[in-house]
Write a protein that binds this DNA or RNA. Structure first.
Lengths: 201, 201
DNA sequence: CATGTTGCCTAACATTTGTTAGACAAATAT
DNA sequence: ATATTTGTCTAACAAATGTTAGGCAACATG
């Protein structure tokens, strides 16, 4: 007797887990149904099609990611603070919903062409949010003369990779992971004689 | 009248391109055959099964990646040199064969269980090669006190991400990309007053 | 010339896929 | 009590999947 109120949400979550585990194409409607202890046909009283499931998950996550970076740009002023906060929000979203994040990160390729284009537009917006922060940091003379494109790609790839190895029962929480990555991204690997250049607000 | 000498290699290359574009599950034997202007059944005179194609590609690339890091550890002595060279080799392998690299990076999940285990063992070996270099750098006091696991994951994720955006007709070649990433990884983002600590060999 | 090999073909197969139609029971509303 | 909605079921579908069997033509080898 499953709680009938949010059956659709259950389907989305179950589907996300299976999409993540086996990939969108390899996870069948019957797999999803079996995981919920119902028949495949029953799913269609809640959702229109398999593609609709993918679309809902991808666009829902895209909006969540986007809203966090908008928030960061509204609240914080210093580029380093902004970057640390953007990374933290990203890590939080990924660790708090690994299944749906994985679909957002990898399975969007299976979106039908029309949805695919709008999805890529949203993803580009998100990347531009990061690029904007890096550019600000360079202009404010807080960051060195790096290539913004490379910096953003490196940051996002590091931060997305979390999804491949993070286990909820591991030793680190989102905050610690975010701090480690932020420190690494900001500080780099090579040992230096360092004096931070203070910035005067 | 296709050159019959290396027909199998052609199949592997065509399959790799399709596996990359659509994913292993979504790319059918008929798709591969059509791309080669033959019938699906004809493929089976050259390969045993669809899974065999995947296995050959994954393990071939795994061996290539592994051999480069062994080479690096044989030739170079300084940790920074080793790391730069390892990154360069990695970038070269990816840019020189994007299709097969993409399969190695993403489609191995579809390997049958037995192959999967040996594959993951090889991949672990490769990651450990990098981790070894980072540890050496810390011991030699060339690198700062970073968490090797994080450093390696960040480096590899950055370097693997190349496969998502690199276009052979783009402005940058493998060497330039590798230098950019190496500089970023080693130097980080934050501006500092820097004096390199010379190491005395 | 005969012989075997190579590479491809057509035809067919069992299975799995996403999806629809229609029925039945329980819960809810009137 | 009656009517309606909701969630599930069984049954079935057309299409696509990986794969096999058997045959035919071109070529190389004895």
């Amino acid at each position: 007797m499953p709680d009938t109120s949010n059956r659709k949400a259950q389907i989305l979550q179950t589907a996300a887990a299976l999409f993540r585990e086996r990939g969108y194409q390899a996870a069948s409607m019957r797999d999803i149904a079996t995981a919920m202890h119902i028949e495949a046909a029953s799913l269609y009283h809640h959702i229109k099609s398999k593609e609709e499931i993918l679309e809902i998950i991808c666009f829902d996550m895209a909006e969540q990611f986007l809203s966090t970076i908008v928030e960061v740009n509204d609240i914080y002023f210093n580029a380093e603070e902004k970057l640390r906060m953007a990374i933290l929000n990203h890590v939080r979203l990924i660790t708090q919903n690994q299944e749906r994040s994985a679909v957002f990160l990898h399975e969007w390729r299976s979106l039908p062409e029309v949805s695919l284009n709008s999805f890529l537009a949203l993803r580009n917006q998100y990347e531009n949010g990061f690029k904007q922060i890096v550019k600000e940091g360079i202009e404010e003379d807080i960051f060195g003369q790096v290539e913004p494109k490379f910096a953003v790609l490196s940051i996002l790839s590091s931060v997305n990779w979390i999804n491949e190895w993070y286990k909820p029962d591991g030793k680190m929480n989102a905050e610690e992971i975010a701090k480690n990555i932020s420190d690494f991204v900001l500080g780099g690997l090579r040992k230096k004689l360092v004096t931070d250049l203070g910035y005067k607000p």
